[in-house]
Simulated scan of single mutants.
Amino acid sequence: MADKQISLPAKLINGGIAGLIGVTCVFPIDLAKTRLQSQQNGQRMYASMSDCLIKTIRSEGYFGMYRGAAVNLTLVTPEKAIKLAANDFFRHQLSKDGQKLTLPKEMLAGCGAGTCQVIVTTPMEMLKIQLQDAGRIAAQRKILAEAQLASQGGAQPSAEAPPAPRPTAMRLTRDLLRSHGIAGLYKGLGATLLRDVPFSIVYFPLFANLNQLGRPAPEEKSPFYVSFLAGCAAGSMAAVAVNPCDVVKTRLQSLQRGVNEDTYSGFLDCARKIWRHEGPSAFLKGAYCRALVIAPLFGIAQVVYFLGIAETLLGLLQTPQA
């Protein structure tokens, strides 16, 4: 049976709907992941994901857990749309006469999808990380100021420094464009590619094969719960597999550093310093959080995608009026 022609508008809409739902559900865990990955030994503020979320709520309120969510909600639609639609496009192009794709071709399609998505992913992650990590930097500076005050015998400073203005996505974008041009928004592009391309190479073939196990018949779709579980399993496995690159990417894209924290000149310099100063286990920082983020994110995405919500909507719009 030949593959049916891909409906690109439907794929884009499905990917966008899935991204919006998924990000809204898991964003606080993603914030914890970023803060855990950004902190360096000797400057640790958070012992675990739950500790990070509790301290964030205490110091920044409930909505502090959604720092940077607006950027993600704005850009996740094109990002997820490009990723899912590109994978379908490449699978369609690589298939012949409706035959099942071989594993190398499935991996090649995933590679193409991961490469396409970084056009949107890199600037989105760049802005999101600054907003997510701002609370950690501010809290660390406050603790340092209180420690210095205590060491001076509790003497009050002659003039209290005004608090730094809270960063916004628009201000960060303007500053980056003014100082570095468009390249400023693409800092960490290499690390993003090294994370997202292997992720897609692992995720899409693994999902396709897990999802196929639940098909009642070769010509039928898998039940929605099979697609959800396959998306969760494939997403979490792929997320943990590429976590070392995600740690490096987060460090490279963090423009502000805490007190006595390392700076990095590039991917290899960052990886060497992490290995030397924090040990190999540092490359797994936030892996648990990342798996908890990616699993439902892609599970929801695949359910929306395979239910064909957009196809239904487009079909209603195209129905001729009586």
Rank of each mutant, 00 (worst) to 15 (best):
M1A: 13
I6V: 14
I6A: 15
P9Q: 14
K11H: 12
L12N: 01
G15V: 01
F27V: 03
F27I: 04
I29R: 00
D30F: 09
D30K: 05
Q37A: 07
Q37C: 06
Q40T: 05
Q43L: 10
Y46E: 03
A47L: 15
M49W: 15
M49Y: 15
M49P: 11
I54T: 13
T56D: 11
F63V: 08
V71L: 00
L75H: 03
V76F: 02
V76A: 08
L84Q: 09
A85W: 02
A85Y: 03
A85N: 05
N87Y: 11
R91Y: 04
H92E: 13
K100L: 15
P104Y: 10
A109Y: 05
A113G: 06
C116A: 14
C116K: 01
C116F: 06
V120C: 02
V120M: 02
T122F: 01
M126N: 11
Q130G: 00
G135E: 04
K142N: 07
I143G: 08
I143V: 15
L144M: 12
L144F: 12
E146S: 09
A147Q: 12
A150R: 13
A150H: 06
A155I: 10
S158F: 09
P163E: 04
R166F: 12
L172G: 04
L172Q: 06
R174Y: 12
D175E: 12
R178D: 15
S179A: 14
H180S: 14
I182L: 12
A183W: 09
L185P: 01
D196G: 00
Y203S: 03
A208R: 10
N211V: 02
N211L: 06
Q212H: 15
G214Y: 07
R215K: 15
E219V: 01
S222V: 07
Y225K: 04
A234Q: 02
G235M: 07
S236A: 14
M237L: 11
A238L: 02
A241S: 10
V242I: 14
N243I: 01
P244W: 02
P244C: 06
D246P: 01
D246F: 09
K249E: 06
K249G: 05
G258V: 03
V259I: 13
V259P: 15
T263P: 05
Y264G: 04
R272V: 13
S281C: 11
F283Q: 00
A291M: 12
L292Y: 05
I294F: 14
F298M: 13
F298R: 08
Y305F: 13
L307E: 10
I309M: 13
E311N: 13
L314R: 06
L317D: 03
T319M: 14
